[in-house]
Structure formats: C-alpha cells, structure tokens
C-alpha cells in the first residue's frame, strides 16, 4: 500500500494537496511521517493503557508496569464482573446512554432538518430573527442553562425523569445552522416547484425530496449530536437522582466515588471505561467519511 501511494504521488503531484513543490522528497516524507507517528502515540496512550489495564487483577493493576501485561490475564472475568455487579446495572446504564443518544440524535436531526429547510426555502417574516436567536444560543454555554433548566423542570415535575435528559438533547443549534446552509446549497427551488406542480403537499415535498437531498448533512448532524449526548455529563448530573436513569458517564463516576472504600472498585471503573469507549471509537473510525462530508459544507459557506 505504501509503495503504490508513493508512486502515485510522484506521477501526479496534484492528486494530493499542496505542500511539497513537486511531489515530496523522501526526506520530508520520512520527517512528516515521523511527526505524525509521534502524535499518534500521544493519542493512543490512554486508550492502549485502559485496554491493557482491563486485563489485570487488582493487585497487578497497582504492582505491574502499566504498559505491559500483568501476571494473570483476567479480562473476561473483569468484564463479567462489570456486567453483573449490582444486578447488572451497567447494562441499564448502557441502554440508557443508547436511548438518550440514538433516539435523541434522531429526533434532533429531524427537528433541525425541518427548521433548517424552512429557513432556507421559505421567505417569511421573522425568519432572520429566528435564525439569529438560535445562533445566539450556540454562544450560550450549555452548562449555564443546565442549572436554571433543572429549576424549571423540577417545578413542572420533569426533573429526574428520562424526559429531563431527552428533551434538552433534541435541540441542536449547530444542526439547524448546518441544515439551513446545506438546504440552501443542495435543494434547488426548481425541484421543489415542480414537485408542487405535480400536486405534492409541502410536507410531502420535505419528507420525500428535502430530506433525501439533505442526507449528507443530516448524517453529520446526527453523528455530532449523538456523540454530544453520549458524552454529556453535566446535564444528567444536574437532572437525575435515580441511578436507574443514569447514562454510562454518570454511572462510572458513581463507581469512581466508591473507589476509596472498596479497592475492587478500581477494576470495575477501569473495565467499565474500556467498555464505554468501544462503541464510539468504532463509530468514529468507521463513519469517518461522513464527519468530513458535512463539515466541509459548513466550512465552505460559513
């Protein structure tokens, strides 16, 4: 793979972007690759550590060298310990995280798509006001709204329910921004007009044509929102008191707080952390293409 890459690069220097004047000299190639590799090590260290540490016993965790294996290999014992501890509450947290992030991101994407589409394709009074208000919302730190939101939700009885985490997760100002820009650029007025002439209602035009043409941006909005919700900590921390409603992040922190009393808790925190990073790392690496696609659209127009 390397050799073909080099050859291609030499033959057609314009294939990959700029940098070197004519292709690239072997020396600069080695230098750049070395820097990239060093950076890669930095990004991998904590992840590598947790995968190694999750295979150890508690005493090995403290006594053996952190980047090497311990005397015993007990990864599967650790995993089953995490999954069964306290009546299998880790499963519950995982399902909660999935519910919040997947359902939340799906609905958030739909809402942002509908609103962004309308802002791009209809001329109506108040349009710029709505857009400006929502963009202003991007600048307000999310954590600054979480506290008052808790006060508000506890007055209407929503605090400490699934809704308390789900409802605020349905709003993505960034998603609205991206959807508007994308709809502007990629849903031609002529297509909408001809669909109307064929008798399609406004809703149908949006659901059958608009959504499909905006698909690349929607994937990006969905992914960012999903990761955002999955990683969220402050909002569930403020909103939830019942352990059964916790997402993984909050659950792991609860376990961490027991570490002082129970040394066995260390392995549960370490193994739980490992399990919790696996799904999103897979999602990020596999779906890399989509992260780029939509962001380019944002950058071009923004």
């Amino acid at each position: 793979m390397t050799t073909t890459d080099v050859k291609k690069g030499d033959a057609a220097p314009a294939r990959r972007r700029p940098g070197g004047a004519t292709g690239a000299s072997t020396r600069s190639r080695i230098l750049v690759t070395a820097i990239l590799a060093v950076a890669a090590v930095y990004f991998l260290v904590p992840v590598y550590w947790v995968f190694v540490a999750a295979t150890k016993t508690t005493s090995d965790l403290f006594d053996s060298f952190g980047f090497g294996l311990g005397e015993e290999f007990v990864l599967f014992t650790n995993i089953s310990e995490v999954l069964t501890y306290n009546g299998g509450i880790f499963w519950r947290w995982t399902l909660n995280s999935l519910l919040y992030s997947v359902l939340g991101a799906l609905l958030a994407t739909l809402l942002a798509a509908a609103a962004g589409y309308a802002l791009a394709k209809y001329d109506f009074r108040g349009r710029e006001l709505v857009f400006g208000l929502v963009l202003g919302g991007v600048l307000v730190p999310a954590a600054a709204t979480a506290l008052p939101l808790y006060l508000l939700f506890s007055q209407i009885g929503l605090a400490n329910t699934y809704w308390a985490v789900l409802l605020p997760s349905l709003i993505s100002p960034f998603g609205l921004y991206l959807c508007r820009i994308y709809a502007d650029a990629s849903v031609p007025d002529s297509v909408i007009e001809s669909a109307r002439l064929e008798g399609a209602g406004e809703g149908r035009v949006f659901f059958t044509l608009g959504l499909r043409m905006m698909a690349p941006a929607l994937v990006t909005v969905f992914l960012f929102q999903m990761v955002g919700i999955w990683n969220n900590y402050f909002l569930p921390l403020v909103m939830l008191a019942d352990e059964g409603l916790y997402p993984i992040t909050l659950g792991l922190v609860t376990w961490q707080s027991y570490q002082g009393r129970d040394i066995e808790m260390y392995m549960r925190v370490v193994t739980g952390s490992m399990l919790s990073v696996i799904p999103l790392i897979i999602a990020i690496v596999v779906l890399q293409r989509y992260w780029r696609g939509g962001m380019t659209a944002g950058a071009v127009k923004g």
Binding site: D5, R29, A39, F43, V47, V50, W230, I248, I281
Partner: peptide
C-alpha cells in the same frame, strides 16, 4: 501536505478521542 503517508488513517486516529466522553478521558 504531499509528504503525508496514510493521511486517512492518521486523521481517523487523531479524531478518535473526540468519541471518548470527557468523564472517561479524565478517568484514564
């Protein structure tokens, strides 16, 4: 730059921590 080897691979790798919750990153 033209000098980069496997840019797609490195790009994915550098982006990977974004998928790690801040809570978990802090634990690690």
């Amino acid at each position: 730059s033209a000098s980069a080897t496997w840019p797609g691979f490195f790009r994915a790798l550098y982006f990977m921590p974004y998928g790690v919750p801040g809570v978990v990153a802090s634990l690690l």
